[in-house]
Design a binder for these strands. Structure first.
Length: 295
DNA sequence: AACGTCTTCAACCGCTATCCA
DNA sequence: CTGGATAGCGGTTGAAGACGT
């Protein structure tokens, strides 16, 4: 590939892994656990670079890997998370049980990215895409409107690393007016339950003073467990923030907050959705409604 | 059947973050 | 604080199979 190798690879195997190599690696990790990748090949008797072993294990051999057939729900979630996080595939993968960052990245590059692009300029989509959709019926599940919303609001999380967090305590209250439909869905799944019962008006209180881990923000579910579309349709929150002054990131500006990567990660890598943090859904509104460079 | 083009995805790369002595 | 080792990330590549002519 025209680049200098990251480490000495004389006598090392390259390219596709053989079943034998897979077995050696699997057996070794089962016996000794993950980690120490650099030394692993030598100890396991593999002619591979440690990095390659790690990748093979994480992306292919791990027992909890779910392969192929990305469902419509998963697809929608990927798009939504991509809109929120940008190309932070590992964070996105963290919310899709059994999926790897590599798989999601590939899926995005080969399917969703194109789809978003095509929907942006429908004229260029052409017959080719039509044909393709015929053979991949699940790909048609997302409406054009959805995709347009997704496309325009990717948060550029990698541009600048923040070490400070500013949160405006004067967050507008979330509307909590009675909603029959919501009430009906209250028992549908954990996410709806928590949303319904924890819509506080204080964006900070739940961050500061609760035993539950506020970092476990986003979603913890298996997509088979309940109807993901409830979450996806929720848009996380739809409070009417305006973002007229995109350069003013001070706490007193219209942006309620600028978030560090750490916070972002915490929000998206937790193992469990904690009830108290649902009120912090407020905090995401600027992301979702913010089309420009927010940093 | 043969050939060329396209698509997919596993594997590779360099870079950065984190850990630890 | 510094620097080496290690882990992890996202971008890119290319082999292989699918598809079209």
């Amino acid at each position: 590939m025209g680049r200098t190798p990251c480490c000495a690879k004389e006598g090392l195997n390259r390219g596709a892994w053989t079943a034998h190599e897979d077995k050696i690696l699997t057996d070794y990790i089962k016996a000794h656990g993950e980690g120490r990748w650099r030394n692993l090949p030598k100890r396991a008797g593999l002619k591979r670079c440690g990095k390659s072993c790690r990748l093979r294990w994480l992306n292919y051999l791990r027992p909890d890997i779910k392969r192929g057939n990305i469902s419509v729900d998963e697809e929608e979630l990927i798009i939504r998370l991509h809109k929120l996080l940008g190309n932070r595939w590992s964070l996105i993968a963290g919310r899709l049980p059994g999926r790897t960052d590599n798989e999601i990245k590939n899926y995005w590059n080969t399917n969703l990215g194109k789809k978003v692009q095509d929907l942006k300029s429908p004229a260029s989509a052409g017959k080719k895409e039509l044909k393709k959709n015929e053979t991949r019926p699940q790909s048609t599940a997302i409406s054009k409107g959805q995709l347009q919303r997704f496309e325009s609001k990717v948060v550029r999380t990698k541009a600048i690393r923040c070490s400070k967090v500013f949160i405006n305590p004067q967050l507008p209250p979330l509307k909590t007016e009675p909603n029959p439909e919501q009430n009906n869905r209250e028992t549908a799944g954990p996410f709806n339950r928590t949303l319904a019962s924890h819509t506080t008006t204080d964006g900070l209180s739940s961050l500061a003073g609760n035993d539950d881990n506020p970092s476990d923000f986003l979603l913890d579910f298996s997509v088979e467990e309940f109807c993901l579309s409830d979450l996806l349709n929720s848009d996380f929150c739809d409070v009417g923030y305006s973002n007229k002054n995109s350069n003013d990131l001070s706490p007193s500006s219209e942006h309620p907050g600028v978030f560090s990567d750490e916070m972002l990660q915490n929000w998206t890598t937790g193992d469990r959705l904690q009830p108290n943090v649902c009120s912090n859904l407020h905090s995401f509104c600027p992301f979702l409604d913010y089309g420009g460079d927010w940093l």
